[in-house]
Amino acid sequence: MRAQYDVAIVGSGIVGLGAALAATRRGLSVIVIDRSAEILGASVRNFGHLCFTPQSGIARTFAAASRELWLQLAVDAKLEVRRTGTFVVARHLDELEVLGDLAARRAGSQALSSGSEQPEVELLTSAEIEGRVPVAPGSTVGGAHLGLDLQVNPRDAVHTIAAHLAERGVEFLPRTAVTAVRSGRVETTRGIIHAGIVVVAVNADIDQLYPDVAERVGIRRCGLDMLRVNAGLRFPLAGPLLTGWSLLRYSAFTRFPAAGRIRERLHAQHPYLAALDLNQMYTQQPDGSLIVGDTHYRGDAIAPFQDERAAAALLDITAELFGTPRPRVLERWQGVYASGPDEYLIEQVEPGVHLAAATTGIGMTTGLGLAEHVVEFALSSATFSSPSLTQQKEFS
């Protein structure tokens, strides 16, 4: 560890790694500091679903940038990125109406992939969706395929990116707590690190380093329950699968009038699932197992104790959706991420110190684009000289 870096990043989740990637691409020296010995937070406790099409507004802008970066990492870091798209199953006419509205809205859009031949939203009949997704026969009224979405293995992706960045000269300082951040310096349990730019990307732990910011903005912690199961599907799930509950979560769906009717119907029919703040969705892993989730509950602190009734509900609705016996649980875990009234926390708290977090659970999808935006802004507003770039000029 040296004394001076161009960029110091606090946090080695997907946003922190994205900031390191953005800075490295610009020829800057980078150190990433994390209190954990390895990456074990929200960036590995997710579906591996890169759901670009369901985003809107600034999230769609970040999603478009993220998609290009994920595809480039597939080449540069030899990262497995599957071009699966996302399937959405409609089991009621109001759900099909939302999908039709989105298809009409996105017709001809090139925001995510210029020059793409395929439609961003392809509507499917009930026969077509049931032929491509192993749901119970006769259980749908149609569906859609969101062809530009991607999928990664959440347990491998961030570690592969970190290894790639280390090969490119990024220094990693694990098992190191950050005690304070000031303009130009990061105070840690291993000493002081000087940097022209500091990016703080600690997600839910923002309430530890910057409690006043978390309280002012309204950021709390969100816990969620997830399972990995052996579901015994009739045939493999070719890509991530969303359901009617998912249409209540992502901004590209919720803007349409029919989304309100979906909410009223599902909450009336399934009050317990509504109380769980459910997003019923699935991704299949390379070994054939299925990631099932997820519930959501918020507070200033998240207790580690998981109510087994939530897991039982996830298993019951999974068996009902796919028309299979109750799945066998292989693993279960609790995720925790920052949750706020807006989709992102982007703030310069003092000169050269930038906070960055996705605060609605879309970090894997949009985090790389968010980080690119924050680093670009930091460089445009910074008034520091780069030791790395100065050395490059001296030896060029």
Results as ranks from 00 to 15, higher is better:
Glu187Phe: 06
Glu187Thr: 04
Thr188Cys: 04
Arg190Trp: 00
Arg190Phe: 00
Arg190Gln: 14
Gly191Asp: 02
Ile192Lys: 01
Ile193Phe: 02
Ile193Thr: 04
Ile193Lys: 01
His194Val: 00
Val198Thr: 15
Val199Lys: 04
Val202Asn: 05
Asn203Arg: 06
Ala204Val: 10
Ala204Thr: 04
Ala204Asp: 12
Asp205Leu: 12
Gln208Ile: 11
Leu209Ala: 12
Tyr210Ile: 00
Tyr210His: 14
Pro211His: 09
Glu215His: 10
Arg216Cys: 02
Val217Arg: 08
Ile219Asp: 09
Arg220Gly: 11
Arg221Lys: 15
Cys222Trp: 00
Gly223Ile: 01
Leu224His: 04
Asp225Thr: 13
Met226Cys: 13
Leu227Trp: 10
Val229Glu: 12
Val229Ser: 12
Val229Tyr: 09
Gly232Asn: 12
Gly232Gln: 11
Leu233Gly: 11
Leu233Trp: 12
Arg234Gly: 13
Phe235Glu: 13
Leu237Ala: 08
Ala238Gln: 14
Gly239Trp: 07
Pro240Ile: 08
Leu241Pro: 05
Leu241Asp: 05
Leu242Tyr: 11
Thr243Glu: 02
Gly244Lys: 02
Ser246Cys: 03
Leu247Glu: 14
Leu248Gly: 07
Leu248Ile: 05
Ser251Lys: 13
Ser251Met: 01
Ala252Gly: 03
Ala252Asn: 03
Ala252Arg: 01
Phe253Cys: 02
Phe253Pro: 07
Phe253Ala: 05
Thr254Lys: 08
Thr254Trp: 07
Thr254Gly: 11
Arg255Ser: 10
Arg255Pro: 00
Pro257Val: 07
Ala258Val: 04
Ala258Leu: 05
Ala258Tyr: 03
Ala258Lys: 05
Ala259Asn: 11
Ala259Val: 10
Gly260Asp: 13
Ile262Phe: 11
Arg263Asp: 13
Arg263His: 15
Glu264Phe: 03
Leu266Asn: 09
Leu266Val: 12
Leu266Arg: 05
Pro271Glu: 06
Tyr272Thr: 13
Leu273Lys: 01
Leu273Thr: 01
Ala274Gln: 02
Ala275Ile: 00
Leu276Tyr: 07
Leu276Trp: 05
Asp277Gln: 13
Asp277Arg: 10
Asp277Pro: 00
Asn279Ala: 14
Asn279Gly: 11
Asn279Leu: 10
Gln280Glu: 14
Gln280Pro: 00
Gln280Tyr: 13
Gln280Gly: 00
Thr283Ser: 15
Gln285Cys: 01
Pro286Arg: 04
Asp287Leu: 06
Asp287Pro: 09
Leu290Phe: 08
Ile291Thr: 15
Val292Pro: 09
Val292Ala: 10
Gly293Phe: 03
Asp294Glu: 14
Thr295Cys: 05
Tyr297His: 15
Tyr297Gly: 08
Tyr297Asn: 10
Gly299Gln: 08
Gly299Ala: 10
Gly299Asp: 11
Asp300Met: 05
Ala301Glu: 14
Ile302Val: 14
Ile302Arg: 06
Ile302Met: 07
Pro304Gly: 14
Gln306Trp: 00
Asp307Gly: 00
Arg309His: 10
Ala311Thr: 15
Ala311Leu: 11
Ala312Glu: 15
Ala313Cys: 10
Asp316Gly: 09
